[in-house]
Design a protein around this nucleic acid. Structure first.
Lengths: 159, 159
DNA sequence: GAATAATAGTAAGTCGGCTAATGTTTTCGT
DNA sequence: ACGAAAACATTAGCCGACTTACTATTATTC
């Protein structure tokens, strides 16, 4: 009774094509699981991506980070401000182009790089647990298609 | 150049099992599309679910709505407070059990019920565009499994 | 070279979502 | 019956995300 009355209500009702109703639920669960795994690191969900990116290629501008995350500039600005306040990153104005803020990991941030990679793999493992390799590929294929469906205008003219 | 440098960065890197990286991206895109479709109604994403539920079965308590949405109580409380302020719902204290707040649609809210159903179908149509019926079922199956993977403890002991 | 456009970042305000803490009212167990 | 436990709702505060301004800088273009 407790396992199927939940977003099941949504799912059960509209028989075909109910995949859409699952998306917000999965997103919440995925975020919650990520948050759980990140406990102890001091990071919040989403920030681990910044650690990962800057760990691999330091000194990126906020604009680059923004594009890489696929979010809007204010989202990045706020997150980085918090991460700076928490001591994970440092931001310095570029001397070449005084509009840009170059972001680098602090020692504290750098020390989390490896752990973040592990946790990320762990999250992926949990997410796709019980799915065969074939299922995983199938899932990726379908999700990519869904993502394309939901981001019109993001695709350039050709290709 | 613009289509593959985006969460593609995440996807391309970690070859197998990268489905997890797609989830937040899809969730954002799905929400954005929903927001777009809801334009003109005055509703924000998530609120349409309340309209839909209360339209089908009026006079539910916030706790019921909370369980149905699958979120935490404060989320529901805040959302309903906004929806009440916007004139979509009304909340009255139950006389039978004075702890509960019974929520009903106002005329304004009720007038959106049908439209919300249409928009919801439309969103589902957009989301699964280009997928065969078989693919849609496959996607649902995989997503349900992922949801189960990500919500441990949500499942009772048996079944 | 000066006016204009494009780019980088910030500020303010809104919303969905969460946790933790609090207050009320029922319900339950002894 | 009475005190403890459970259930309903709210408040406060945080984070990620978005839109809509707005500032500062660099590029363009006439």
């Amino acid at each position: 009774m407790a396992s199927s009355d939940w977003p099941g209500s949504l799912v059960a009702d509209r028989a075909p094509g109910s995949a859409g109703a699952l998306i917000p639920a999965i997103a919440r669960a995925h975020r919650a699981m990520g948050e759980r795994l990140l406990q102890g690191t001091g990071l919040r969900t989403g920030q681990e991506l910044v650690i990962s990116l800057l760990g691999d290629s330091p000194g990126r501008s906020q604009a680059e980070i923004t594009r890489w995350l696929g979010v809007e500039p204010p989202t990045t600005a706020k997150m980085l401000a918090r991460m700076e306040r928490a001591g994970f990153v440092e931001r310095v104005r570029s001397t070449e182009d005084r509009r840009v803020m170059l972001v680098t990991l602090t020692e504290k941030g750098r020390s989390l790089h490896h752990r973040v990679g592990e946790l990320w793999s762990e999250l992926n493992r949990i997410t796709t647990a019980g799915l065969s390799d074939k299922d995983q590929l199938e899932l990726e294929r379908l999700l990519l298609r869904v993502l394309e469906n939901l981001t019109p205008g993001d695709s350039p003219v050709l290709e």
